[in-house]
Each structure stands twice: as structure tokens, then as C-alpha cells.
């Protein structure tokens, strides 16, 4: 069966919502795709080339090789989050959220439509960063199946978080709290730019409370075959978090929380 043939088996409302979510971010591609890729390339130059020599090697890999999985994950989670959260917030702000709320679309279809739209954008940005980075430090792809699984689960997790945030937020300022106070600090402190092995014991233990640390290291394991944490426990935890957040989204939609008065 062809891809389009398989897609035609999916419910039309879900496919429509997915199409809308993807089409929406392609309309503003400079902002949604090019900007994060350029930011990642700048990080690559500043940290990888300028300061990289000071960090030494990581399990035999150059600092540039170490850095790339972190940058890919950073682009992936940020954009997976931003797509559904900004889409929902804009829809609520402009009022067109009623198009979804008055239509005969099931709660699961709504979640999947927004989630897959966010995942698509996150994975597209992550892949673009990887492609550009590969010119400077082609990664070895040690565990490709694991790598793809982690990327999918991470994108799903942050898309689901984006749905929660988009429903919860009542104004754009509420929404800005997530990247400012949660995602960016956890990403920067989650080992994008350094291995926690260089931290003092206390801060190493504190870092282990950061879920982004496991995601970034899991992706690093997929690429390089080495990381700071147990990759299999990380994968299992990621799957559990995905399921839990899906449940939260479902409960919010079913109850009409901040959507239906």
C-alpha cells in the first residue's frame, strides 16, 4: 500500500487538522524552520569551533561530535513545543478555536492532529540541524533504531506539553513562561554543551533530576553509542511520560478545561 493509500485510512478530521498544523508553520517558514537552524549553526560555530578545544574529548569523540546531538535535541524539543502551543494560543486569541470545538472531532483525533503537527516540525528542524552539522562533524549513528525512537518520543512529549500549555495559557505571556522558565533552562542545564561528568558531585546529582538530561543523553547514545545515563531506563521513562501527558491532554479536552465554559 502506498503512503497516500495508507493515509487515506486515517480519519479525515485528524488528517485535516494535521494538514492545517503543518501548512500553518510552512507559511511562516523563516520563523519556524530557518531561524532555529541558523541559531543551532551559530552555537556550533561559537561552542564547537571557538571554544571546543578547551573541553577536550568525550569518550574518544571530539567536542563537535559531542555537541551535535544536544543541538539537534534542543531544536527538536523547542519546535515540537512551539507548534501546538502557539497554534492553540493564536486560535484562542483570534477565536477560530470554535472551528475545532464545534466540529465532530474526537478528543484523541484533536490530540493526535496537534501532536503529530508539532512532531513533524520538531523532527524537521532537528533533521535540518543534523544535516547542516554533518558537514562539520558527521555523526556515526551507532544505534539508529534507538535514535529514531528517542527522537519520536521526545518530539511527542514536547508536542503534548505544547498542547497542555496552549490550552492552559490565557494570554501570550502565560505561554512564554514555558520556554523561558522551563524548557530553555532545563535544556541548557541538561548537558547540551557539557557532560555532567565534569560537574562537582553535588551538581551532578542535581542534574540527574532534569528530564532533559536523559533525553539529550539518550539521543547522544543513539548517535555516538556513549552517554552519561542509562539509555534504556531513559527510553522507558520517556515512554511513560508520553503516556502520562497524553492522558493529561485527554482529560483537559474531555472536561473542556479553559476551552468550553
Amino acid at each position: 500500500m502506498s503512503l497516500s493509500g495508507a493515509a487515506s485510512l486515517l480519519p479525515i478530521p485528524f488528517r485535516t487538522l494535521f494538514y492545517r498544523e503543518v501548512h500553518r508553520f510552512f507559511i511562516v517558514i523563516n520563523q519556524t524552520l530557518l531561524a532555529p537552524v541558523i541559531s543551532a549553526v551559530l552555537y556550533l560555530f561559537i561552542f564547537g569551533f571557538s571554544l571546543g578545544n578547551r573541553f577536550g574529548s568525550f569518550h574518544g569523540f571530539s567536542y563537535l561530535h559531542f555537541l551535535v546531538p544536544g543541538l539537534v535535541m534542543m531544536g527538536l524539543v523547542n519546535n515540537s513545543f512551539q507548534n501546538p502551543s502557539s497554534s492553540l494560543m493564536i486560535s484562542k486569541f483570534e477565536g477560530n478555536i470554535v472551528d475545532i470545538l464545534m466540529a465532530p472531532i474526537g478528543h484523541v483525533e484533536i490530540i493526535l492532529g496537534y501532536m503529530l503537527g508539532g512532531m513533524f516540525r520538531g523532527l524537521l528542524v532537528g533533521t535540518s540541524i543534523l544535516l547542516v552539522s554533518s558537514f562539520f562533524a558527521p555523526p556515526p549513528f551507532s544505534h539508529p533504531v534507538y535514535l529514531i525512537t528517542v527522537a519520536l518520543l521526545s518530539a511527542a512529549l514536547f508536542s503534548l506539553l505544547g498542547i497542555v500549555a496552549g490550552i492552559w495559557a490565557e494570554k501570550f505571556d502565560d505561554l512564554a513562561m514555558f520556554p523561558t522558565f522551563i524548557i530553555t533552562p532545563l535544556t541548557y542545564l541538561g548537558g547540551v554543551f557539557y557532560s555532567i561528568s565534569i560537574l562537582p558531585p553535588f551538581w551532578r546529582k542535581v542534574s540527574l533530576l532534569n528530564p532533559l538530561l536523559y533525553m539529550i543523553n539518550s539521543l547522544r547514545f543513539g548517535f555516538l553509542g556513549v552517554c552519561d545515563v542509562n539509555p534504556w531506563w531513559s527510553l522507558a521513562s520517556l515512554a511513560v511520560l508520553d503516556a502520562a501527558l497524553f492522558g493529561v491532554c485527554y482529560a483537559m479536552l474531555k472536561s473542556g478545561y479553559r476551552l468550553r465554559r
Partner: peptide, 23 residues
């Protein structure tokens, strides 16, 4: 209220609206 989705054209809007209703 005059509510609309400013990302799309008139035809795209009607296509999306149809899709929400499974058409």
C-alpha cells in the same frame, strides 16, 4: 463575531472546514 484563521485563503478555509466534518 467575525472570527477567522488568517493563515489561509478562502478556498483553503472551506477545504479545512470540510475536513473537520469528515468531507
Amino acid at each position: 463575531e467575525l472570527i477567522y484563521d488568517h493563515f489561509f485563503t478562502v478556498r483553503q478555509t472551506l477545504k479545512i472546514q470540510s475536513g473537520y466534518y469528515g468531507l
